[in-house]
């Protein structure tokens, strides 16, 4: 008989998605979520936090009920401690502390970015990849070495998702702009040159976003969407390829919500084919913000003893992934 692995409840709610899940060593046992969708404009931290507070009870109730059906006994409560919107983080942390105390199990504070990486490594079964992590707020190329995920290159201003959303809002598209831009870009007829900004291993998207907005005055939306994507993604893939060449690693893992973009996946896949590298991306449900990634990383941390006391569980809105001591690898 299989030795019964520990189960961890994880709660994610750094920004738009409140999501909870229970995982053990081998699978995601239960999950429940509620997403915040702004009526107009972009994500508002306070409105998102209010959404999370309103739906927390239901989401936790649902995930625990599903867990119970599967005989899951919770060994620890993990939550995303940062980076993210302060009000959202505090809402989630409050719920996690209360659950940890009432169930009398350890509390674990998980770095949101690291969780994106770990769920990908788990589900794709890839040991030591170069990671391209692209979401609304974050755009980073990372690689593990000697106890930490090191950042090879990152955005010097805004995340790629945020860049897409900003441009999308300006063009009159509803939040989130990314998927709509991807759709519209398919109908493009020509490419127009936009600023291609790679500085060393870092990239920048805010100048590109401004140039794309300006271009709308004299070019069709389809062409600008296409040119925006092609330019921005080429920058990301170029730096990823250089990290691959520099580290000598053979695998690429895509993580984060913008990973759902099929053009970005296609470009990474092509680059990997040409370098005889392997390209990995988990299912879209596990690239966007999700509770399972927090639960799974929480499980890794629990087994390596990285638990928190309530006193030390203050949220960290500016928590960088390269600050995390990786105790489980």
């Amino acid at each position: 008989m299989r030795r019964k692995s520990k189960c961890v409840l994880g709660i994610e709610g750094t920004a738009w998605n409140l999501s909870a899940a229970i995982v053990d060593q081998s699978r995601v046992i239960a999950s429940a979520e509620s997403s915040y969708h702004p009526v107009e404009g972009g994500l508002h931290p306070r409105a998102a936090a209010q959404h999370h507070a309103t739906h927390m009870e239901q989401v936790i109730h649902d995930v625990l009920a599903k867990g119970k059906k599967n005989n899951a006994k919770i060994s620890a409560v993990a939550f995303s401690i940062g980076p993210g919107f302060g009000p959202c983080l505090r809402t989630v942390a409050t719920a996690a502390r209360a659950l940890s105390l009432s169930m009398n199990v350890p509390l674990i504070g998980v770095n949101h970015c690291i969780a994106h990486i770990e769920i990908g490594r788990w589900l794709c079964n890839v040991a030591d990849p170069v990671i391209l992590y692209v979401s609304g707020a974050n755009s980073q190329v990372l690689s593990y070495r000697n106890g930490k995920y090191r950042i090879f290159g990152e955005t010097l201003d805004i995340g790629i998702g945020n860049a897409l959303d900003k441009f999308g809002r300006y063009a009159g598209l509803q939040h989130p702009g990314g998927p709509k831009i991807e759709e519209i870009a398919r109908k493009a007829k020509c490419y127009m040159p936009l600023p291609y900004v790679v500085k060393g291993m870092d990239f920048s998207f805010s100048g590109l976003t401004t140039a794309a907005k300006d271009a709308l005055a004299h070019a069709p939306l389809e062409d600008v969407c296409h040119s925006f994507q092609e330019t921005a993604f080429a920058m990301l893939v170029e730096v990823t390829e250089r990290a691959l060449a520099h580290t000598g690693k053979k695998d690429i893992l895509l993580a984060g919500g913008v990973g759902a973009n099929s053009r970005l996946m296609e470009m990474l896949n092509t680059m990997c084919q040409d370098r005889s590298a392997k390209f990995f991306a988990p299912d879209k449900a596990y690239m966007k913000d999700n509770g399972a990634m927090i639960a799974y990383t929480g499980l890794l941390m629990l087994e390596s003893g990285a638990v928190l006391s309530v006193e030390d569980s203050a949220v960290r809105p500016n928590y960088r992934p390269d600050e995390v001591e990786v105790t489980w690898r």
């Binding site: 490419y191 893939v237 390829e241 250089r242 691959l244 370098r275």
Partner: peptide, 25 residues
């Protein structure tokens, strides 16, 4: 075959050529 270009040694001379990247436009 670096990220940027391929480096070839031909008769004691280095040839650095930037091969096209298929992934980008």
């Amino acid at each position: 075959s670096g990220a940027e270009a391929t480096i070839e040694l031909r008769d004691g001379i280095i040839l650095k050529s930037r091969a096209p990247k298929r992934y980008r436009l």
